[in-house]
Design a protein around this nucleic acid. Sequence first.
DNA 1: GCTTTTGCACTGACCAGTCAGTTCAAAACG
DNA 2: CGTTTTGAACTGACTGGTCAGTGCAAAAGC
Lengths: 209, 209
Amino acid sequence: MESSTVTGGGSSRRAATRQKLYEAAVTLIAEQGFSATTVDEIAERAGVAKGTVYYNFASKSVLFEELLRHGVGLLTASLREAAEKTAKDGGRTVDALDSMIRAGLVFIERYPAFTQLYVAELWRTNRAWQSTLMVVRQEAVAVVEGVLREGVERGELSDELDVPLTAAALVGMVLVAALDWQSFQPERSLDDVHSALSRLLQGRVSGRR
Amino acid sequence: MESSTVTGGGSSRRAATRQKLYEAAVTLIAEQGFSATTVDEIAERAGVAKGTVYYNFASKSVLFEELLRHGVGLLTASLREAAEKTAKDGGRTVDALDSMIRAGLVFIERYPAFTQLYVAELWRTNRAWQSTLMVVRQEAVAVVEGVLREGVERGELSDELDVPLTAAALVGMVLVAALDWQSFQPERSLDDVHSALSRLLQGRVSGRR
DNA sequence: GCTTTTGCACTGACCAGTCAGTTCAAAACG
DNA sequence: CGTTTTGAACTGACTGGTCAGTGCAAAAGC
C-alpha cells in the first residue's frame, strides 16, 4: 500500500531506482524531518545499497530538492487543470475555487507524506533548498492568485479582495484541514471534507439555513 | 532585537538562564529543525556553557518539549481571553471568531519562530514528543471548537457546520496567511492582514459591493 | 555461434568528521 | 555556605560521502 509516491513512472532501470528512492525518502523525511533521516535509512527502505543513492543523486540535499520540485509540479498541474476545466465549462469563479479545493484534497489524500514534508519545510529560513522552495511555492500559489484575480476583473469577487493574502489563506485552509483530516479523522470521506470546506468558502457558515 | 521569545519572565537566576536557553533554542530550531540544531549552538547563542544546558534540562528533547508546552500555553491563554472578552461584551459568535483571529495574528507576529517550529512539527509521526504535541494541539483547537459549538447552539451558526473540521480550517487559514505575511510581505500591518482575513471569514468575498 | 569487450548500474566496507551527553574541579553568585 | 554556572576534555555512537570492485546485458570482434 504505497500511499505516498509522488513521482511518475519511468522505463529504464535507473529511472525505476530513482523512483524507489523518492518513495523511500518522502515517507522517511515526512516522519522524521530531513536532518534526522539518514541516507542509510533511505537506501535500506528503497532496497538498494547506499552507494546507489550517490550514484543517482549528487547528495542527500539534491535528492530532496528534486523530490520537492517534482511533487509541487504535480500539485501545480492538478490545480491548473481544475481551474481551466471549470473555466471552459463557463463556471463561475467560486466554482473554479471549489474545484481547486477538491483538487487540493485529492492531492493530499494521495500524497500525504509529501504534503507533510512540504509544510514542514516551507517557512524555514537559511536552508540549502530555500530558493527551490520559493520557486515551487510561487508556482502553486500563482494558480490560485490567477483565478482570484480573474474573478475580481469579471466582477464576481469584491474588488477590495486582497489577492495574495486571500490565496495564502485559502491554501492554508485546505492544507491544515486536510492534514488534520488525515491525521485525526482518517475515516471520513473526501466528499465529506470537501463539502465542509466548500460551505466555509461560500460564507454559508453564519446564519441558520 | 529578540523577536521570538516565547517564555514569560522569571525571578531566580536559574529561571533567567532557562529563559535565555528557550530564546536561543526557539530561533535555531525554527530555522534549522530540531535534529539539525546542536546543543553547542544553543548554548553559544544563549551565551552560556554547554554544561549549563544539561544542568537545567535533562536532555535536548526535554528542553524542546518544555519549550513546546510553554509556547502553546501562551497561545491558548491568549485565544481563550479573546473569546471570553467578546462573549462578556455580548458580541456575536462571528465577533468572537474575529477577535480570536486577531489574537492569533498578534501571537504569530510576536513569536514567529515558535509558530514556524510548531507548524513544522505538528503533523510528524513517530517522534519522541508526539504525545506532548497532541495534547497541546488539542488544548488550542478546543478553544476554537468551543466557540463554534456555542455559535451553533445559539443558532448563530448553521447547525450543519462541521465543528472540528471548520476549527482546523480556520486555524489553518490564519496560520498560513500569517506565516506568508511574515515571510513574504513583512511590511504590511497587522490590521491590514486582519481585515483581509475578517472579510474572508464573513463571506464578503463573492459579489461586488 | 562464440568469445571478448565495454560501460552502465550497483555494491558495501570504509573514513573522517560530528554530535549528544558526561564528568568534574574550580569559580561565581547571592 | 549552598546553589548555580563554567569550561574544557572526553567518549562512543552515528553519518555523509567515497571508492575500488562486482554483475551483467548488449555490442564488437572473429
